[in-house]
Amino acid sequence: MKPLLELENVRVRFRTRSATRAWLAGIRDPFVDAVHGVSLQIAEGQTYGLVGESGSGKTTLARSVIGLVRPNEGSIRFEGRELTGMSASDANRFRRHVGTMFQDPVGSLSPRMTIRTLLAEPFKIHGLGNADLDHEVRRLLDLVGLNPNFSNRYPHQLSGGQARRVGVARAIALNPRLIVADEPTAGLDVSVQGEILNLLGKLQEELGVSILVITHNLNVVRHITDRMGIMYLGRLVEQGPTREIFRQPRHPYTLALLSANPEPDPDARINRVELHGEVPSLINRPSGCEFHPRCPFARKPCADEFPVTRTGGDHHSFCCHYPR
C-alpha cells in the first residue's frame, strides 16, 4: 500500500531559556526534545492511532504534520512531497488537503461566527469563495447529520456532540486526503462518543480519507484504528497493527498501559503491570532506555544502553532490550 504520509526521524525541539539566560545559568543546550526520532507511515484510507500520556509529544507531532510546528530534523512527506522547508505559500496550499479537528470543540469555533460562516471559512481562505457556499454549507451539514437550520446558530447554542459534528464538517469541507483528529471524543459521553466515531468511520468509507487520531482512550484506539503507535517522552516506543499490539504488546510501557485500562465490571480480575515512580522530565531524560526507571522488568544494560528498534512480523516494531 502506498503511504500517504511518511515521517522519518522527526525531531521537534523547544527552547527552554533565552540565549542570554541560558548562558548566565551555564546551560549549554537550552532545549527540550518534545518529539525525538519519530518515524511512521500512514497508508491511504488507513486510521493510525497515537497514544501516550499527556506531555508525551502526541499533539506536538500532530502539529508538525499540519505545519503549525517546524521540525528541527527529519522529513515529513505527503504524497511523496517533502513538507519541511516548504515556503509559507506552498504550505498553505498543502494544508487544503489536511483537515484538522482540534481538542476543544467549542473553543475551536469562533463564538462570534454563525455555523454558516464557520463552514464557509475554509473555502474563503483557500480562494474558493466563488463556489455556491450556501449549497456547500447544506451539503456539509447533511454529511455530518445536522439539520440545515443549524447554519444560523452560534457555537454556544450547540451541545458538545453537535459542536464536534461542526468540527468534523469543517475538517472535511475541502475534501481532504488526511484528517488529523486530536482527542476527537475527549469529554464526551459514551453514546455521543460512539456517534462521532461512527461519523468519522462513515466519512472515511465514503471519502477514502486517512485519519491520524490522537487519544488516550485505549478502547477507542482498539475499535477504530488499523495501526497504532505508543509514545513515551517524545519517542515512539512501539508501533504496529492495532490487533497485534493488543494481542501481544512487546514494550513494557505498552503492557502497563493496556493492562491499566479500567473495565466496566466491578468483578473484573485485572492482572495489572504496575508502574512505579514518576514520569521523568523532558529536561532530565534518563540514561540508556528512557523507560528503565519505571520499568518493572529493567535489568542492568537498560540503564546504560539505548535499545535499538527491533522489528517483529508485519511492521510491528518496538524499542526495548528485553521485549515481552
Binding site: 453514546s191 462518543q193 456517534e195 475499535h223
Partner: peptide, 24 residues
C-alpha cells in the same frame, strides 16, 4: 444502553459503535 455503549465492553472489534439514538 449506557453500559452497552461503552467500547470497553465489546470484546469483538467493531467499526460501528453502538449509540443511543435521539437527543437529550
Amino acid at each position: 444502553k449506557l453500559i452497552e455503549c461503552d467500547p470497553a465492553r465489546m470484546v469483538e472489534i467493531t467499526r460501528v459503535q453502538p449509540t443511543i439514538p435521539g437527543e437529550v
